[in-house]
């Protein structure tokens, strides 16, 4: 038994021995220590008289540039309806699996909008998992999720960092985009009556 273990370990030891790096010999200048300290001070002094780049956070806040990818939130359309139809593409694409959607199922309430048929029963984004990659916004066929400019997320415990549907919708606000389901319904309404309904 012991022999078997030793036989296993031996080659490993051989490899570790080969991997030991010899320490480099320091020159006198390097061993003197003080020149390096003085060099460091020089950098400090130079930056001390430059224009300040720090902000007095949290009184002062950083204005992020356009195109910044902050937290993903759900948006409503101009009539205050949930745009998300629970297609779950964002849940699928999300690399760290930060999104969890509970689809409505057959029995739950249909969508706010008459023609969209469904919306999520629950929609969660775990902001601790989210890496703000923007894939969800890109994949969404309904323009229902956007990465807004929010970059500061604080919570006192983990559960608080999981944003639920209501919170996401409240934070996301309104997005004035195409209202394709409404237009479809209008288009259908304008057409002559369907001959025999199934």
């Amino acid at each position: 038994m012991v022999e078997r273990v030793i036989r296993r370990i031996r080659p490993i030891r051989r490899i570790t021995q080969q991997m030991i790096v010899e320490r480099k010999k320091l020159s006198l200048w390097e061993r003197l220590y003080l020149p390096a300290v003085i060099g460091g001070f020089k950098v400090t002094l130079r930056l001390f008289f430059r224009k300040k780049v720090t902000l007095q956070y949290p009184e002062q806040r950083w204005m992020v540039p356009d195109g910044y990818r902050g937290a993903p939130y759900l948006v409503k359309d101009q009539e205050g309806n949930t745009k998300c139809v629970s297609c779950q593409l964002c849940e699928f694409i999300c690399p760290p699996k930060a999104i969890k959607i509970i689809p409505p199922g057959p029995a739950a309430q249909l969508a706010d909008r008459p023609n969209a048929e469904k919306m999520p029963l629950e929609f969660e984004i775990n902001m601790l998992r989210c890496i703000f990659c923007g894939y969800c916004q890109e994949v969404c066929p309904e323009e229902a999720i956007f990465l807004l400019k929010d970059w500061s997320h604080v919570g006192t415990h983990r559960a608080e960092m999981v944003y639920h549907k209501e919170k996401l919708l409240a934070l996301g606000g309104t997005h004035r985009g195409l209202q394709k389901w409404k237009h479809k319904l209008e288009e259908a309404g304008n057409q002559e009556n369907f001959p025999v309904k199934p």
């Binding site: 629970s86 297609c87 779950q88 849940e91 699928f92 689809p103 409505p104 199922g105 057959p106 739950a108 048929e117 469904k118």
Partner: peptide, 12 residues
């Protein structure tokens, strides 16, 4: 299917 309707996307 009424039973499976809107329950889960099939790719999951």
């Amino acid at each position: 299917s009424k039973d499976f309707r809107f329950q889960m996307r099939v790719w999951f």
